[in-house]
Design a protein around this nucleic acid. Structure first.
Lengths: 196, 196
DNA sequence: CTTCAATGCAAGTACTTACTTACATCGTTA
DNA sequence: TAACGATGTAAGTAAGTACTTGCATTGAAG
């Protein structure tokens, strides 16, 4: 019973939805059960406690590491094209896992440590990969380097700030097209700044 | 009685501290009173409810709009110098009000609407001022423009992402120097990208 | 000395929340 | 048919939380 219509999965998805909206503390087990269309007791029979329910959600709907694969396989050594692909992939991946990310981002003193670690992995990984990429490109004289790590951070934090502003603060989600436009423009900008 | 040692102010400051740390929902009135060194009843005598206490905190420890003043008075029309000053001022201002910002950022279904509006003002204002600045600079051929608004957003979101990563996610605050270095490097980067 | 406002203290109310227990229902499978 | 596992229902527990009430204490002002 691991398909999306099973009782367990209905509970996990309902919990993610509600907690992303109202925070871990602000979401009650009664609400979660109601949203999943089952009795509250069933929630405790399946997961024991509220914390374990959230942990199960993180284990089941896991971050895919498509970023690592991307850097290994899909980059072609052409700055604009590569940065565009990186940025697009980052936003796609973050959007898919946005609710789990938001829950960790809002935080709570009752949140299991596991949750924070999982949410921090994605950005950390990107920083490492991007720094290595810039160094490799500069060795081919395709990028002008001053401080690879800070340049990578600039690109990363720009995308991170964009993601948060679009998905966390905004009442209604930003339309796809305007985020795409932003990505293109910002990649153009970085390409101009980094090209020798 | 409006000095920092008055009972009211001790309560306001304690509330801000605790709520920034544990969220609005996760902070109890008993804790706040204890941290302020007064009885819980005194809290209710002064502010009536928990919500009104937070509203009072926002009214008292208000965002200064030093950004507007900065754009009107201190910019000299030299791209690198101006962007550096803007970025530094932004981070200084955000840092001073970081706890109020964090409380709004973490959110809760019980937070007064006023709180969200106040927290959103600062970034919105910066976007407007920065866009106008870029347009004005391009008319003097000091900046190469493609889409002023998206270019301003790129700069803004980069700084926003940096601020959040440094002050929200990190367990211990980032050392001053490394943020300063980031600011310099990122401004250099943008200057190179925008200079004709 | 008296008055009065601010505060502390003790107790309590009304409500919510995570979590439990006991029992009934129902569909599947042996 | 009989047994069983998953679920619903009803009721309850223990703890916490925002907020209230009544009374005693104190310290400064008149």
């Amino acid at each position: 019973m691991t398909n999306i219509h099973s009782t367990s999965d209905k509970l996990l998805l309902a919990a993610i939805d509600l907690m992303a909206d109202k925070g871990y503390d602000g979401t009650t087990t009664k609400e979660i059960a109601a949203a999943a269309g089952v009795n509250e007791v069933t929630l405790f029979r399946h997961f024991g406690t509220k914390q374990k329910l959230l942990e199960a959600a993180y284990n089941r709907y896991h971050y895919a590491d498509e970023m690592t694969k991307l850097f290994k396989e899909s980059l072609i050594g052409e700055l604009y094209t590569d940065l565009l692909l990186i940025s697009q992939t980052y936003h796609r991946s973050m959007k898919r896992n946005r609710k789990l990310f938001i829950i960790a981002h809002r935080g709570s003193s009752n949140l299991p440590e596991e949750v924070y670690q999982e949410a921090g992995r994605h950005p950390q990984q990107l920083k490492k990969l991007l720094t290595e990429y810039l160094i490799a490109m500069s060795e081919q004289d395709k990028v002008v380097l001053s401080n690879a790590e800070l340049q990578a951070l600039s690109f990363m934090w720009m995308n991170h700030g964009a993601f948060i502003s679009c998905h966390l603060n905004a009442k209604e989600p930003i339309p796809e097209t305007s985020l795409d436009e932003f990505i293109e423009e910002s990649v153009r900008l970085f390409t101009r700044a980094l090209t020798p």
